[in-house]
Structures are given as C-alpha cells and as structure tokens.
Design a protein around this nucleic acid. Structure first.
Length: 243
DNA sequence: CCGGTTGTTCAGCG
DNA sequence: GCGCTGAACAACCG
C-alpha cells in the first residue's frame, strides 16, 4: 500500500472527516493518543509517503512502511495502531509508524519535493540531482528528499520507460536525459495513481516482476542493487548504461 | 508453508 | 562523526 500515489488516495478518502470532531480514540500506538480526543481535525495532508493528520498546534505523521494498512468506516480483525471515532464513521490504521509532532506542518515540510504535489518543482529536483552526481540512478530515484513519494515499483517502471539502466551514474546522463528522469518520476506517479484507483496497477507493469522484456522479449534481469539492495528489474538490452 | 517484499530507523562497527 | 551493514518491525501474497 505504501508508495506516494497510494497515500494520496488515502488522503482523498479521509477528506469527509475534515473539520469533524474526534469523539473516541484507541489503539496500540505509543504516542499520547488521548490528546486527540475532543479535537477537530483541521486537515489531512500528505507528503510523499507520509500521511499527515493536522490539528491546531500539532500533527500526526503516519508512515505505512512496508505493511501498513487502513480501513475507513470498517475494521480489520486486528488491534488498530490508531482508531479515531467520529459522530459519523471511523478511521483505523494498522501496523504503521505514528509520530506526534508539535508545531505547524508547513514549517516542517517542503511540498515542492513531493512528486504528486501541486507545488512539485522539477527544476529543483534537477538541481538536487546535479549535487548528488555520483549516485546510481536507482538510488537517486528512491531519495525522498528529491523525489518524495517514489517507491521501488515506480523506480523500476520509470527507468524502463526512459530506457536507462539502473546502474547508470547520475552525472553520466545528459541534461536532456536527466530532465526526462525527473519528468517521468512525477508523470508515472500520476499513472500509478489512476491505475491504483481502478485496481489494475499490476496489469500495467512493464518491467517490475515481469519475466520478459515487453520490447525485445529477452529475459528480465532481477538484482538487489543500490544502497538499500532493493529488488531491481531491468532489461540489459533495452536500458542504456551510462557509466 | 515458507520466502519475499510497494519502507524506514537505529545500533554497531571500522 | 562518517558511511556502511544488518536487524528489527510486521502482514500478506504466491
């Protein structure tokens, strides 16, 4: 559930609760959850993979990590990490990381680095990449400071779309190719978002977890590469190695 | 039924 | 203090 587009979908699903008062709080989260009792939710926001529930003077930062889930107006057969009950309806989060942060969310987040934000700034991302010139492209795409919201699936699909080998080095890409990388990181995220809403995300995967390259039909290579040794799927034949 | 993973943080080490 | 590595967390799918 956890790449940026899924978090945008969550944020949208939460909008009916905006401005509503929390009547009941429970859950296994270690934060002081009773603090929310009786408070109105000021807003639901998101930044990359962060879900933000904003109150006056503080906010909750919820990260789904790998296995987090949620239910709106229903429950799972599990103890929620956080349950928020309203006069009408409820929100339940499971196996996620929750932090309570004092202050205003706008002081902590730079919305222009979120690939799905209206404030997304492609030029700024290009500048950040030029500073991180020795990075492998597969690591650069997962850097949340530059591409907040991009996850492992998006990484693989973006690199296949722009025909760049994951082991390529950032400063060996032409300026044109770098622009393409930045553009597609945001662009593919919006495609992901639309497909996810239609429950047909997997249907559109071109390279991620595929057996053969849809273009040349050669077997797809699968490797655990980059800083986090994340699963990387690519076509040695179609994706150019800039090194 | 076991192995793998749409992610991040932190401890430990050199 | 740095970067690197591996562990920990945790739930579902194939």
């Amino acid at each position: 559930m956890p790449e940026g587009p899924s978090i945008v979908i969550l944020k949208e699903a939460l909008q009916p609760f905006k401005g509503k008062k929390i009547l009941e709080v429970s859950g296994s989260s270690k934060i002081d959850i009773q603090r929310m009792k009786g408070l109105k939710v000021e807003d639901f926001k998101s930044w990359g993979k962060h879900s933000l529930i904003c109150f006056r003077g503080f906010y909750l930062r919820i990260h789904m990590l790998m296995f987090g889930t949620y239910r709106i107006n229903e429950q799972k057969d599990a103890v929620p990490r956080l349950h928020l009950g309203f006069k009408q309806g409820e929100i339940n989060f499971y196996s996620c990381s929750i932090r309570l942060i004092e202050g205003d969310v706008n002081d902590d987040y730079d919305w222009s680095s979120d690939v799905m934000s209206e404030a997304w700034d492609a030029k700024l991302a290009e500048k950040k990449l030029k500073k991180a010139s020795k990075l492998n492209v597969c690591d650069a795409l997962l850097d949340q400071e530059t591409f907040a919201g991009v996850g492992n699936i998006i990484k693989n699909e973006v690199l296949f779309r722009i025909k760049v080998h994951p082991k390529s080095i950032i400063d060996k890409l032409s300026s044109k190719k770098l622009k393409e990388l930045v553009k597609e990181a945001s662009n593919y995220s919006f495609d992901f978002y639309e497909w996810k809403k239609l429950f047909e995300l997997k249907k559109h995967w071109l390279i991620y977890k595929k057996k053969e390259c849809p273009r040349c039909k050669l077997p797809v290579k699968k490797d655990h590469i980059g800083k986090g040794k994340r699963l990387t799927c690519y076509c040695d034949n179609c994706q150019v190695l800039y090194k």
